[in-house]
Amino acid sequence: MSESLSDDDISQEECQEDGMTPADLIAKLEEAWRNEKFSPELLASQSEVVECVMEQLTHMEDNLQKVKKRDPKAAIHHMEIDRIRFVLCSYVRSRLQKIEKFFPHVLEKEKSRGKGEPSLLSPEEFAFAKEYAANTEDHMKSAALSHMPPILQTLDMLKAVPAPCLDSFVFLRVKERQENILVEPETDDQSEYVVDLEEGSQHLMRYRTIAPLISSGAVQLI
């Protein structure tokens, strides 16, 4: 239904920051949503895309008020707005669930990221992660640790909370041809396993192997 975004009754404005049309924005949001949904770890924040889509939703809802209620386009545009809102909410919810599940590792990765390396978290997500971590630690101390001997009253959250399983397998579609992708390293039992990924092909592969390709946009999870 993304084509309906180009109709006269829907906003024709582009996101000034990225120079993308509304249809481009929705496609980028949907790709970010699928990648986040199927990735075992938290991916880099797409907050700019989220903000642009929210702006477009506002424009769409405003323009929808100008459409006659009996116009067949109105029902179609209502469905499109609901679909986009669902994808947007699901994307944000998926990220918050991962932050709650892996908060020590998320904060540690954010703390140790190099200069110029994109942040995993938006400012709002970072504030949420810190508050969630503080509340969790306070609860652990009041509910259990404070009642234990002093030697047992410290808790390493990085060790206590399981890290994302980067060796899990994911389905992916190749957007740009990739050569010499190392699938399995050389071991005593087998030789090095390297493959070429053809554009448009689909694969089931270990996430750790193709994680950099997701960040670069060369592949997308499905």
Rank of each mutant, 00 (worst) to 15 (best):
E3Y: 12
S4N: 09
S6D: 11
D7K: 03
D7F: 04
D8S: 07
D9I: 02
E17Q: 12
P22W: 14
L25Q: 08
L25V: 05
L25E: 10
I26T: 09
L29C: 02
E31D: 13
E31I: 08
A32L: 11
N35C: 10
S39C: 09
P40S: 05
E41Y: 10
L42D: 04
E48G: 12
E51W: 06
E61R: 13
L64E: 11
K68S: 11
K69W: 01
K69S: 00
A74W: 06
H77G: 04
E80R: 05
I84F: 03
F86T: 10
F86Q: 08
V87D: 14
K98M: 04
E108P: 03
E110T: 02
P118R: 06
S119W: 11
L120G: 15
L120R: 14
E124G: 05
E124K: 14
F126W: 14
A129L: 12
E131Y: 02
Y132S: 01
N135W: 05
E137K: 09
H139K: 15
H139S: 04
A143Y: 11
A144G: 02
L145Q: 03
L145D: 03
L145A: 06
K159S: 05
A160W: 04
P162D: 13
S168P: 15
V170P: 02
K175Y: 12
K175V: 07
N180H: 08
N180L: 01
V183T: 12
E186L: 06
E199V: 11
M205G: 02
Y207E: 03
A211C: 04
G217Q: 06
L221G: 01
